[in-house]
Design a protein around this nucleic acid. Structure first.
Length: 925
RNA sequence: GGCGCGGUGGCGGAAUUGGCAGACGCAGCGGACUUAAAAUCCGCCGAUGGUGACAUCGUGUGGGUUCGACCCCCACCCGCGCUACCA
């Protein structure tokens, strides 16, 4: 078979192969019980109009990985679709008077073309689009199932509202410091509305377990924090009138220190507790709190506000009568909306108590602050006056403070330890030097007490910021105040706490809960930060909530045989953004499925996260009309084996989809406890200016142009090479030249024959095979671990070696032919077009993408010689080439014989010799 | 404030997880080919000193553990992300 010698022209090669692959359906994934299945899924895009570099970064490496799995022998399903409902479509409608449907489907068409240009192995027969009626039919059906199983409910509550998008938002869609809308960055406000919720909190505990899934630690942490489990107790106080007032606390052991209670402004008992005299003030406060958006609350710099209700509550442990206040630092949406306030042991309560002159009673004895045993000699126990540890540090008590004296040369060594002491009233003197370090507050305090004038003078005399000790001082100043120590009950013991006084700190919580349970006034309790999922959206472009409101029969689901509830096309958009569904003259008019009388449809649509919570199921059978998915497909393909996407979904989509799967499981629709077994996240591609790419910044890189200039293979290769996939990094428009050069070199190596006369020397063939199989080993391992950048690096390195071998006469030899074959297979997942073209050019059978992944020849990969590292006192002194199987004695002998080693030994006898087999000898003198 | 991630040449990044720091690539420098440029090929490329072989230093900072630390421990500094009056 003669090889063609022609130049690399990706713009010709790539579309040609894409077309052929499509025609031949080589990426079709069909049920095949004879092969192990692999469901590889990449998070589906929103059809915003253009594929940007972020899409490519998410999609091409995961495509490579799916291709690798296929070559490994798996029956791989790799589908693609569009998360097509959502606000941008509606905004386009308002701004440009295009129907959202038209806008969305035109974008999808354009993006399909772009996706094809990547040369990915998507099985387009499985495409699913969430705005298709055949899709949202089943989104609605799921809603009804959730409703029937009491997992969807309506509640009137204060919800987050985006005034710009004109809709409510789920808690997860409110972001950042200033609590803004996830979509448009407008600060959200609170509105009291009746809305649909899903009972995500029902699964809070279960979702904390990641035991059955291989998900990144980072995501696990984010989800765990988001779910926010706290352990403590629920304690029932009573109002003067006998109303139970339940509070949640993580510190039941401070119950005796509760000097007042605080209710959230929206708390139902506020009304009843408020005395006539306080009524006006409380009412005004409630009014003002409800009007305030969260950002207004922030802007007051957390200065505590609140009013006294005039009412009192009874502390169940000691019968104390304590005042009940209303304040907005207590949130209705967390815990019970009521707290017991313990100013002695809680900073927020402390601030509030100070501001309003409420009493403060400590119930935990000031705990010991001595933590480091290294410094604390036996003499340094409680009540010591002076102690010296013999290591250049002395501690003594003076004026109720601790004075720590350090030998000058010990400052650096002890600085960590000293910081421990410095959490409270401490100062440090350096022995033999004039330096004294004192907190400014401490000086102030001393000035007003009987402190030694001499010391005070010294403190003021020497500027603590003098250069040599500046950094030390900065470290000291950055120490947090001592609350974190004082608030930890493991130290110290309970005081002022009735029957529990003197209980050691480490048992305090448990003993208190025990006492509460005995008396029936409280119990151990767990609370979560996670809220139920608010699903209603007051928008048009979404799946209509399939519920009917009847004056007599209440709220009932649309009968399943009447699904889908179609979105009407003939709607008008108001610039105010009000939902066109609500304004539509006839659409909402219907009959009640129970009594048959006139009734109204729910005019809200569902959060689009509802659509994306189950799209992986729709891919199984996108045209199936007997249910959301075909069970046969489900049984073969599910669960998703590898899921890839951005980390930004950690506390949104990835929580919702887990909830959704578990809810479906409990309704008998799905099996198993988790929808996606393995999750991997890619990072973000930044612009060349190291900033996030954005149109307004003008730092975006258009992938289409790059494909035109370099070809998709080069873009794919560069995206895999330029940064660690899980971290992402800045784009470098020069850097892509490196990947382009690599592929051109590969092309040349495979298409330009070299005069090959004599057989290559034995060593050349051997070295080539060794490198080849070592590379194969590394590449295989890196594919398993999603370490794409080093795959490309390894292939570049091997290509450099192949060039050298070629020069040394290897071209055309059996080793060379093997290298060609294996090289193309390894390259196929990364540069599928070039690999296919060169494979064909070698006269090998179509298609390379049907070939199995090559096997490592471990014997060929084995090194025969190694370069033995010889160290003296841990420093590299010599490298000696020795056979791999060298034994320890021989290695030691050779190392000691080294001339350089002898020079560094300077005649001294080695005290100890450490030999690491086949690697290194370290001689200690 | 809390939680998490990260800090390695001019730049992006490697380093089998405790054993040659800087693979691979970009940029730069030198050379070959060319009338010339581009492309291509070859070589050099952490800092300091030395003509040189070589020596010393070097993975944010300060300590520690170890024969040996980018890697483990303690403390700190800086950057990024998430979160935030969560009781």
């Amino acid at each position: 078979m003669s090889k063609k010698n022609y130049s690399y022209n990706p713009n010709e090669i790539e579309p040609r192969w894409q077309q052929k692959w499509e025609q031949d359906g080589i990426y079709h994934a069909d049920i095949d019980p004879s092969r192990p299945k692999h469901y590889a899924l990449t998070m589906l895009p929103y059809p915003s109009g253009d594929l940007h570099m972020g899409h490519w970064f998410a999609m091409t490496p995961s495509d490579s990985r799916a291709r690798y799995m296929r070559m490994k022998g798996f029956n791989v399903m790799f589908p693609m679709g569009f998360d097509a409902f959502g606000l941008p479509a509606e905004n386009a409608a308002i701004q440009r008077n295009i129907h959202p449907k038209e806008w969305t489907y035109a974008n999808i068409e354009r993006m399909r073309g772009q996706l094809r240009s990547m040369g990915a192995m998507y099985d387009w027969r499985r495409e699913a689009i969430s705005s298709d009626p055949k899709y949202y039919h089943w989104t609605q059906w799921f809603f009804i199932q959730l409703f029937k199983h009491q997992m969807a409910y309506r509640k009137d509550s204060a919800v987050d509202w985006c005034p710009n998008c004109n809709t409510t938002l789920a808690r997860e869609q409110v972001k950042g410091d200033d609590r803004v809308c996830e979509r448009c960055n407008t600060p959200v406000i609170k509105k009291q509305l009746e809305q649909w919720f899903f009972t995500t909190t029902q699964y809070a505990e279960e979702m904390l377990s990641f035991e059955q899934i291989d998900w990144p630690e980072r995501v696990q942490t984010l989800q765990t924090n988001w779910i926010g489990r706290s352990e403590g107790a629920s304690v029932v106080f009573e109002s003067e009138y006998g109303d139970p007032m339940e509070v949640f606390t993580t510190r039941p052991d401070t119950l005796w220190g509760a000097t007042f209670m605080v209710l959230a402004p929206e708390h139902p008992l506020v009304e009843k507790l408020t005395t006539p005299e306080q009524h006006a003030a409380v009412h005004a406060y409630q009014e003002q709190a409800s009007r305030q958006s969260d950002i207004d609350r922030e802007s007051a710099e957390r200065e505590k506000t609140g009013v006294f209700t005039g009412g009192y509550a009874i502390n169940p442990v000691n019968g104390e009568r304590i005042p009940v206040w209303v304040a907005d630092y207590v949130l209705m949406s967390y815990g019970t909306g009521a707290i017991m306030a313990v100013p002695a042991h809680d900073e927020r309560d402390f601030d509030f108590a100070i501001k309003f002159g409420l009493p403060i009673i400590p119930v935990i004895e000031n705990p010991a602050k001595v933590i480091k045993s290294v410094v604390m000699a036996d003499s340094m126990k409680e009540g010591f006056d002076k102690a010296v540890d013999g290591n250049g540090i002395a501690v003594e008590k003076k004026y109720g403070n601790l004075l720590i004296t350090l030998d000058e040369d010990k400052v650096q060594e002890y600085i960590n330890i000293v910081q421990v002491y410095l959490k409270d009233n401490c100062w440090v003197e350096i022995a033999g030097s004039p330096w004294v370090f004192v907190f400014p507050e401490t000086i102030e305090k001393w000035e007003s007490t009987e402190a030694d004038a001499r010391i005070l003078a010294r403190c003021k005399e020497y500027d603590p910021k003098v250069a040599a000790f500046r950094s030390v001082m900065e470290m000291l100043n950055s120490q947090p105040a001592y609350q974190d120590v004082i608030y930890h009950s493991e130290y110290g013991k309970m005081i002022n706490s009735g029957p529990l006084s003197d209980t050691p700190g480490d048992q305090a919580v448990q003993k208190t809960i025990q006492l509460l349970e005995e008396r029936g006034t409280g119990k151990g309790a767990v609370n979560y930060r996670l809220r139920d999922w608010l699903i209603s959206r007051q928008r048009y472009w979404g799946a209509p909530i399939p519920m009917i409101h009847c004056q007599t029969c209440g709220v009932n689901p649309v009968p399943e045989d009447q699904l889908p509830v179609l979105l009407p096309d003939d709607v008008e958009w108001l610039p105010t953004g009000e939902s066109p569904l609500k304004l539509h003259p006839t659409w909402k008019k219907t009959t009640c499925p129970v009594c048959g009388e006139e009734a109204e449809r729910d005019t809200d649509t569902m959060d689009t996260f509802m659509c994306s919570s189950w799209y992986h199921l729709r891919y199984l059978s996108p045209d199936y009309d007997q249910g959301p998915f075909d069970l046969a497909e489900y049984n073969y393909w599910m669960p998703v084996d590898t899921y890839t996407g951005g980390i930004e979904h950690a506390t949104m989509h990835l929580i919702y989809t887990r909830f959704f799967h578990k809810a479906l499981r409990d309704m008998g629709i799905t099996e198993g406890h988790e929808p996606m077994t393995q999750l991997r996240n890619q990072g973000i591609v930044l612009g060349e200016d190291y900033e996030k790419m954005s149109k307004s910044r003008g730092n975006t890189v258009p992938p289409d142009k790059l494909v035109e200039d370099y070809g998709a293979d080069t873009v794919r290769a560069y995206l895999m090479f330029f940064a660690r996939w899980d971290l992402g990094g800045p784009w470098d428009s020069q850097g892509i030249e490196g990947s382009a050069r690599w592929l051109r070199r590969v092309w040349t190596a495979f298409t330009e024959p070299v005069e090959s006369g004599a057989e290559p020397p034995e060593e050349v063939s051997k070295a080539l095979r060794r490198k080849l199989h070592q590379t194969l080993m590394a590449v295989t391992q890196d594919f398993e671990n999603f370490e794409f950048n080093t795959i490309v690096a390894a292939l570049m390195e091997l290509m450099n070696e192949m060039y050298k071998a070629r020069e040394q006469g290897a071209y055309g030899s059996p080793a060379w032919l093997e290298a060609e074959d294996v090289y193309l297979r390894m390259m196929a997942p990364i540069a599928p077009h070039m690999a296919e073209e060169l494979w064909a050019n070698l006269g090998k059978p179509y298609s390379i993408h049907h070939q199995p992944w090559p096997e490592v020849d471990a014997e060929a990969a084995r090194e025969e010689e190694i370069s033995l590292i010889v160290q003296v006192n841990g420093k590299l002194r010599d490298k000696i080439t020795v056979p791999v199987e060298i034994d320890d004695e021989e290695a030691e002998r050779i190392a000691l014989a080294s001339e350089t080693v002898q020079r560094f030994l300077e005649g001294k006898a080695p005290r100890k010799v450490i030999v690491v087999k086949g690697k290194l000898v370290n001689i200690v003198v």
